[in-house]
């Protein structure tokens, strides 16, 4: 077994274990119905996390994700009340996400600015943009949105996949292809592994950085679209802190925060674990939501410590 799959295996093991624990505690927990719900409720965060996976693999970070989700939502909602067709606004917002991400990536590389501070600026700008557009929650009423919300694909065992869940799974497949079967994907791993070596090996580092943040941006925008369809509204305070959940999902999925090591598929399970924890605690009923964050935090902590030891063997062998 290749070492690089160990973190993914650990993630999947934890996911299955949590699912089985849930099943042993509550009737009907081990069902496609619960699974479908977790997928539906967490689709947007997992989509955002898939984009964040590329950014983290390249050795960077993107904090503008949550604001992007809210911004896409409010613009869609306001344009909806102005009579635009959702498909047009969706295409527009995806293009905006791509360009905004590319801009962040360009500034990061060109001005040699830490990604943390650049995307923090992006976070403020986009969140401020939300308040410029509207201060209230604006409903999206177009029949297309209603149709999307009611479209479901039944699963064996009574469960179903929502549109959001399907979009998420499709974008995951695309991301896996990008990460593992394109030159761009390889370049992302390379600059995250060792930027200077990658440059000397002929990897176009600027182009790769710009495209990485553009990918992060378009996935964040797509997450915004899915979130808007899921809630049928746009709200300027929506998805506050979603970027941190996305980062947590990526790390739980086995991607190394320092870049260069990880698998996109892991992010799906990382996001599902977070969803499973909150579902378990909601099922319990008497425990308050504080425990969702506490247990997510503890799990995150255990994972990063575990990675430290698993990943140690990947490092360059150093002279003493």
């Amino acid at each position: 077994m290749n070492q690089k799959y160990w973190p993914l295996l650990a993630t999947i093991t934890v996911f299955i274990a949590l699912f089985v624990i849930g099943g042993s505690m509550y009737n009907n927990f081990l069902s496609t119905l619960v699974l479908g719900h977790i997928l539906a409720d967490n689709a947007f965060i997992i989509i955002a996390a898939i984009g964040t996976t590329f950014v983290i693999l390249s050795g960077g970070i993107d904090l503008s994700v949550g604001s992007m989700i809210a911004f896409v939502g409010v613009v869609m909602a306001v344009l909806d009340s102005a009579g635009w067709h959702p498909l047009v606004t969706i295409a527009m917002m995806l293009a905006f996400g791509f360009l905004f991400g590319a801009f962040q990536g360009f500034i990061i590389d060109y001005c040699k600015i830490q990604p943390f501070i650049m995307t923090l600026a992006g976070l403020f700008i986009l969140r401020g943009g939300c308040f410029m557009v509207t201060l209230d929650s604006v409903p999206i009423k177009h029949p297309f949105v209603k149709m999307m919300a009611s479209t479901r694909v039944p699963l064996p065992g009574g469960g179903f996949l929502t549109t959001g869940a399907m979009v998420m799974l499709a974008s995951l497949v695309i991301a896996i292809i990008i990460a593992h079967y394109t030159r761009f994907g390889s370049n992302v791993y390379a600059i995250g592994g060792d930027r200077e070596s990658a440059r000397l090996m002929g990897v176009p580092t600027r182009k790769t950085t710009v495209l990485t943040y553009a990918t992060g941006g378009i996935y964040a925008a797509l997450a915004g679209v899915v979130y808007a369809l899921y809630t049928s509204s746009g709200y300027p305070l929506a998805a506050t802190g979603a970027e941190l959940n996305a980062i947590a999902a990526v790390v739980l999925g086995g991607t190394l925060l320092t870049g260069g090591v990880g698998l996109v598929a892991g992010t799906l399970f990382g996001g599902m674990i977070l969803g499973l924890i909150s579902t378990l605690i909601i099922f319990h009923g008497s425990l308050n939501s504080a425990w969702i964050m506490i247990s997510s935090g503890i799990l995150l902590f255990v994972f990063i410590v575990m990675h430290r030891f698993l990943i140690g063997s990947f490092g360059r062998q150093k002279l003493s």
Binding site: S186, Y189, A190, G193, S197, A198, M201, F314, G315, R316
Partner: peptide, 13 residues
């Protein structure tokens, strides 16, 4: 790139 496989290193760029 130490974390990448031999073939991936060879295929880079």
């Amino acid at each position: 790139i130490p974390a990448m496989s031999v073939v991936k290193n060879m295929a880079l760029a």
